[in-house]
Nucleic acid binder design. Structure first.
Length: 598
DNA sequence: GCCGTTTTCGGCCCGACTGTTTTCAGTCG
């Protein structure tokens, strides 16, 4: 059993206990579920090595939970969980994924209307049967319908991070088949879109039958949707559809171009070809009946008078014109990051210690990191107040003294309150090497108010970086309504950096916002938002991809710089901010006023 | 149910919002 499956059982138990009104236990199960999910190695391996005693080394797992884990790992079942499920056989995770629905709502919906699934809920809401339930009303019903619409609009799509592994594994499997000359991943996966609907693989092979067989009979395949010599299609157990195309070597480049897309990019390229009295399709670039390119992508671009365009840019957002002018950006490369500036530890809601994070970051090749635990406004994480930060400063100094080869900076992820004030006093902020500021509450303010609140926080002279600027969670929560042009303008004016939070379900900023920011000359930082040692690679793995989609170069990113140059940039920003006029007091903002600010 | 540099028993999870209510329950971060 994988960690994610074990965690899921514990999450269910937390929800069932919550329904019973049991105190404290739900939180305990929730915490343990999180620890299991984040645990570096499979908990199953831990058990194999050290038995039930070893299970108790997972934080939040004591005797009772270790026994349940042991039962799950040895029998694949948990009697308590099954008993709950027998009494209330509902899709807990699915229903609770809808915004505004928690354990108690699930219970009411089940007991009053027999709702078991998201589909049941949709039917009941559309029939107007929700509004008459106790503690529900017309507005709750509307909210559920809205939540359902959001879930269905995103369903069928997958996070890039969940797709890369299985797709690469399948590509590797095909590459090992005799007679296969080339394998490539195409489609939106190659363009590194943050979410993908399906994946495309391209193969050049002398023996299409053998490749097709290896593809359709791969271990993860749940269903074969189509099976032919040039095109096959399967669905994995995760629901992801993967298409395979077998193409001749002479057409490989043209096919790769065609199947990488985007559609808009392809249309623009074909129009360009027509202007030159050429024809571009998935088999090649043709003048009359004669192919003048097709074997390689670069050859196709060249014959169209273009430099080769990196896949991340192929969205028809000006990349073709830039390629014509020879003005494509020198995109940031993997391996460019020297620092990671958003890291949570076990001082708040992270899983690992400062020292463990420092050692892991050093091993990953970082030269510096900033510890940025939450502040007191985020009470649920045990957020730091001024005194706790003073103690942490001493702990960080101790780590700097013992761990050589990496510099650990004192920072914080400081909460922005409703008025745009920060929840630490100025003296404490001034002592920090790096002040990240972030919104964690009041997501549903009107656009003008939300924007004004964040802009006001950005004007604080001690603030260095705006963390996860839009607050979105991919496939789960929309970004809050904020005027990004106003945020970019404020960053430009204050010299503040905007973060690309590379946690794979955030990727916040998104591509277009990154592009606007760098066009305005706003510095970017790319962070992992690590809550555990295993997360430290996120910046490198997902952040760089996303940054490339945003036309970002290494020079735009502060944490590509060596530590001294990085710190110098922060100092320049702070001295600049210190002489700028006092921030206006918080006051109700009219829509027009916010627009002028932009 | 877990945990321990005040504790092996007694704390943990708190504040704000929303929608449903006329004083509160549920959800969220």
């Amino acid at each position: 059993m994988r960690n994610a499956e074990l965690a899921r059982v514990f999450r269910d138990l937390a929800a069932y206990l919550e329904m019973e009104g049991v105190a404290f236990k739900p939180r305990a199960y929730e915490k343990a579920a999180q620890a299991i999910e984040r645990h570096d190695e499979p908990v199953a391996d831990l058990y194999r090595r050290g038995g039930a005693r070893a299970l108790r080394t997972v934080p939040g797992v004591g005797a009772s939970m270790a026994a349940k884990l042991e039962e799950l790992l040895t029998t694949g079942r948990c009697a308590v969980h099954e008993e709950y499920r027998r009494r209330m056989p509902v899709d807990l995770a699915g229903l609770m994924a809808i915004e505004g629905i928690g354990p108690k709502a699930v219970q009411t919906l089940w007991e009053a209307l027999g709702i078991r699934s998201v589909a049941d809920l949709a039917a009941a809401a559309r029939a107007g049967r929700i509004r008459d339930l106790p503690h529900f009303g017309e507005k709750s019903e509307q909210k559920i319908l809205h939540g359902l619409a959001f879930v269905s609009a995103t369903s069928g799509r997958h996070l890039l991070c969940e797709v890369l592994g299985p797709v690469d594994a399948l590509a590797e499997r095909l590459g090992a088949v005799r007679g296969v000359a080339q394998v490539a991943v195409a489609g939106s996966v190659r363009r590194r879109r943050e979410t993908v609907g399906d994946a495309d693989l391209l193969v050049v092979a002398r023996t299409p039958g053998a490749v097709t067989k290896a593809f359709c009979e791969a271990p993860d395949v749940a269903a074969v949707l189509a099976r032919g010599d040039t095109r096959s299609s399967v669905r994995l157990a995760t629901g992801l559809q993967i298409d395979l195309r077998v193409v001749p070597a002479a057409s490989f480049g043209a096919a790769l171009l065609y199947f990488t897309g985007s559609k808009a990019h392809n249309v623009a390229l074909r129009q360009l070809a027509i202007k030159r009295r050429l024809k571009l399709n998935e088999y090649g670039l043709y003048r009359g009946a004669r192919a003048i390119a097709g074997e390689t992508e670069a050859g196709c671009y060249e014959a169209l008078g273009l430099a080769w365009i990196p896949p991340e840019l192929r969205e028809d957002r000006g990349e073709i014109e830039a390629a014509q002018r020879g003005a494509l950006p020198a995109l940031i490369e993997h391996g460019s990051l020297r620092g990671d500036l958003q890291i949570q530890t076990d001082w708040t809601d992270g899983a690992d210690s400062i020292e463990a994070m420092a050692r892991a970051a050093k091993a990953a090749g970082f030269e510096y990191i900033a510890i940025t635990d939450h502040t007191r406004g985020l009470a649920m994480t045990g957020g730091c107040d001024e005194a706790k930060l003073r103690r942490q400063r001493a702990a960080i100094a101790a780590v700097n003294a013992t761990v050589a080869g990496i510099r650990v900076l004192c920072g914080a992820e400081v909460n922005i309150d409703r008025n745009g004030d920060l929840d630490l006093d100025d003296a404490a902020l001034a002592r920090l090497d790096l002040v990240g500021i972030a919104v964690h509450s009041h997501f549903h303010l009107a656009r003008a108010e939300q924007t004004a609140r964040i802009v006001r926080a950005m004007q604080h002279p001690h603030a260095d970086v705006l963390f996860h600027p839009t607050g979105r969670v991919l496939l789960r929560r929309e970004a809050y309504d904020v005027d990004m042009d106003a945020i970019v303008a404020a960053a430009r004016k204050t010299g503040m950096a905007l973060e690309l939070d590379a946690f794979p379900d955030r990727l916040d900023l998104r591509d277009e916002h990154l592009r606007r920011a760098v066009a305005a000359g706003v510095p970017i930082v790319i962070d992992s938002d690590a809550h555990a040692v295993a997360h430290l690679g996120f910046g490198e793995r997902y952040g760089i991809d996303q940054a490339r989609r945003g036309w970002v170069t290494a020079a735009d990113v502060l944490n590509t710089r060596p530590i001294e140059r990085f710190l110098a940039a922060l100092r320049r920003r702070r001295s600049r901010a210190a002489v700028s006029p006092r921030r206006p007091a918080a006051q109700p903002v009219r829509r027009t006023a916010a627009r002028r600010q932009a």
